[in-house]
């Protein structure tokens, strides 16, 4: 994985040239404003995979997303009220063509819902869906075009906006010398979090080394406790690292966002989602979404659960804990 969730993002507003669109200040900044060589031209042959990956971070109707382009790929970042952030990493290896010409890392904002709805129109079942992305267009748009057929063509121009200048990074740091994390079947994690809806607004996550286990606890309209015991069911918890008791509370609606929209393909693959607790209780949830082209996958390979690592999109959620001193044992 070429991206590091904790890295500092280079905000590229210090570009040499700034171009504004003629339409009322919806312009964008970019490091290279030469229409002959756009910052990025790339082609993807599995749009559905991208739709799945982006849908997994779509937890409400109106969400602004920031796209950051680099030589390594595209990162999409969404955020909610300073408490929840999600990133989708689309590495350049996912693309059949990736031509990056910008200096620095251009960033621009789009409406996530619109972007996903738009991509959705490019994936008609039973039809090849190779799609070309180009940024920027003449008015700093993100340009999309299907390239599958000469006699039928779908295209889109998505208006971009200047992203917020604040860094959206949550600065995830390990809690101590030993990482505190566990890997759990994605379906089980989703089911547990779905079940926790009933008691109420806040969920406590407790990791303890002896016996190695993860506990989800919610108290509200009723009490509900869900335990994942490492030794009791090793299929469920694929990995467990914890050398101290750690306990933090998270708002249910943010916790729910981490699994509510993970695509059915992830649940079906049931690979595993990794949950890490960092310094100060920052929660990181990671999922893997396959962006492999369906026709190239072999049934016998699929049945073994093997996927080319390069055709995986990485999704990370960061959830800030509720501030509640009493519940922090560190």
């Amino acid at each position: 994985m070429k991206f590091d969730g904790g890295q500092t993002v280079h905000i590229c507003l210090v570009s040499e040239t700034e171009k504004r669109s003629d339409f009322g200040g919806k312009g964008m900044t970019s490091s290279v404003v030469d229409s002959e060589s756009p910052d990025l031209v790339c082609e993807l042959d599995n749009v559905q995979g991208m739709v799945d990956a982006l849908t997994s971070v779509r937890w409400k109707r109106h969400q602004d997303a920031v796209l950051e382009l680099s030589e390594h790929g595209i990162v999409l970042i969404v955020e909610d009220t300073g408490c929840l952030q999600a990133k989708v990493y689309l590495q350049r290896e996912l693309f059949v063509r990736y031509e990056y010409n910008a200096q620095g890392r251009p960033r621009f904002g789009v409406s996530l819902g619109l972007f996903v709805d738009c991509l959705n129109t490019f994936c008609i079942p039973g039809h090849s869906s190779t799609i070309e992305f180009k940024y920027p267009g003449p008015d700093m748009q993100l340009l999309l075009k299907s390239t599958a057929s000469l006699s039928a063509c779908t295209y889109a121009e998505i208006r971009t906006r200047i992203p917020d200048t604040i860094s959206w990074d949550y600065n995830f740091e390990p809690a101590g010398s030993t990482p505190i994390n566990f890997t759990v079947k994605s379906a089980a994690l989703k089911e547990a979090i779905d079940d926790l809806e009933w008691p109420g607004s806040s969920v406590q996550i407790i990791l303890q080394p002896v016996p190695p286990s993860v506990t989800f606890k919610a108290e509200g309209h009723g009490d509900l406790q869900i335990d994942f015991m490492y030794y009791a069911n090793m299929d469920l918890l694929a990995a467990f690292n914890c050398d101290q008791i750690v306990s933090h509370r998270y708002k249910y609606k943010f916790l729910r966002a981490t699994t509510s929209n993970i695509p059915s393909s992830v649940i079906k693959d049931n690979r595993g989602s990794k949950v890490t607790i960092g310094r100060g209780g920052m929660l990181k949830v990671q999922h893997l979404v396959s962006v492999a082209r369906p026709s190239t996958s072999h049934p016998h390979i699929d049945s073994a659960g093997y996927q080319q690592p390069s055709r995986i999109a990485y999704i990370e959620f960061f959830v800030k804990p509720e501030v509640d001193e009493e519940n922090v044992y560190e």
């Binding site: 409406s111 619109l114 738009c118 129109t121 000469l150 006699s151 039928a152 063509c153 779908t154 295209y155 889109a156 121009e157 998505i158 208006r159």
Partner: peptide, 12 residues
């Protein structure tokens, strides 16, 4: 719309 132009062309 003000945010997006989305189209499809079928030829011949």
């Amino acid at each position: 719309t003000s945010l997006i132009t989305l189209g499809a062309e079928f030829r011949k």
